[in-house]
């Protein structure tokens, strides 16, 4: 009997809690309290933790940028990595009047296309996507072409090094395309330059990433490039410990291996997104194609050399790389040419 009493009292607690919660609508007080009327809202669906120091963090920082630059009200969600979750997350944002929603990866395409017709006043952006379809005009693919800066990295590696190891989390376009660019760049210098790709099969195993890096170093490589979110930290650590060269991905990672990182590829997604968001906010955004960011958008995608490296990239090589930029931008060099 006692047990039943316990259960009943527990149930009462649940119910009261539930009603108490329900009676308290989640409508948050608008942050900063600036825009009184319908504030501009920007949302993000991140496929992984936004503190990963890589791909997801890039998007999160872009979102923050919209908050500071445009006074946008922002929200983000690290969706469960299952297609079942994507549509709901899009709808949850759209239902709350978000006008700008970024699905940070091609995997969100199906869900965005399914949801978009119901919310004609909301723009659904997709990272790592070349999606454009006039029949769903409010879904726009945004591709930040990582193969371009990585082509430059490959070029530098082949000029300065003995071999390179590329360590990826899983084989998805933001990863594999950056590697393709790297390999093409290296092979442009020397078709026989040893460069290989390792996939870890996850995004979290820093230890395996480090071990994979060491494998390359033992095999004679002295350049590393990691593109594996969290696990990428293991690659930086291998650079530091084994004192080999490497590059930082998506942001300034210099401090993780101050002497070894020769250059960082900065993806300032915010710079690219803010003016899009601004146009969406003003109602002037009328896309007629998908959007590509490349080296030509030099505020979005660029390379910063590390002057503090033990052996900084020499000036003449930097000049060569700079000369590559225009060829890449003009299409004379195809950084995504298939590698075999």
């Amino acid at each position: 009997m006692k047990k039943h009493l316990f259960i009943i009292s527990a149930l009462i607690i649940v119910l009261s809690l539930v009603t108490a919660c329900a009676g308290q609508p989640a409508a948050e007080p608008a942050p900063a309290g600036e825009q009184p009327a319908a504030a501009f809202k920007a949302g993000l669906l991140a496929p992984g933790p936004v503190n990963d120091g890589g791909w997801n963090q890039t998007a999160y920082e872009a979102l923050k940028r919209m908050e500071t630059d445009l006074g946008a009200e922002i929200g983000y969600v690290e969706v469960e990595m299952s297609p079942a979750a994507f549509e709901k997350a899009f709808r949850d944002f759209a239902d709350q009047g978000y006008q700008f929603i970024l699905g940070h990866g091609n995997e969100f395409t199906d869900a965005a296309v399914a949801v978009a017709p119901d919310y004609p006043n909301t723009f659904f952006f997709l990272s790592s996507s070349r999606f454009y379809d006039p029949s769903v005009p409010n879904v726009i693919g945004l591709n930040s072409d990582s193969s371009q800066p990585c082509y430059a990295f490959g070029y530098i590696a082949a000029k300065m090094g003995t071999g390179a190891g590329l360590i990826g989390g899983m084989e998805i376009p933001p990863i594999s395309e950056s590697f393709t660019g790297f390999i093409n760049g290296a092979h442009a210098v020397n078709p026989d330059f040893p460069v290989q790709v390792t996939y870890l099969g996850n995004w979290t195993d820093t230890a395996s990433a480090k071990e994979a890096s060491i494998s390359y170093i033992d095999g004679g490589a002295n350049f590393l490039l990691g593109n594996a979110d969290f696990a990428g930290n293991g690659v930086y650590q291998a650079m530091l410990e084994k004192n080999v060269y490497g590059f930082g991905m998506f942001g300034d990672n210099t401090e993780k291996a101050p002497q070894q990182i020769l250059a960082n590829y900065i993806l300032d997604y915010g710079a690219g997104l803010v003016h899009l968001a601004d146009a969406v906010k003003d109602g002037t955004f009328k896309p007629t194609s998908n959007i590509e960011f490349g080296l030509v958008d030099d505020d979005v995608i660029y390379i910063v050399y590390n002057e503090g490296a033990a052996t900084p990239v020499p000036q003449e090589l930097r000049d060569e790389v700079a000369a590559l930029y225009s060829k890449i931008s003009s299409g004379e060099i195809d950084t995504l040419a298939p590698v075999e």
Binding site: P49, D52, N202, T204, D205, T206, A207, S208, A209, K210, F230, A231, N233, G234, Q237
Partner: peptide, 12 residues
Amino acid sequence: AYADQFVEGVVS
């Protein structure tokens, strides 16, 4: 003693 940082799910 392996990687130098905690990340979510590091045990993998």
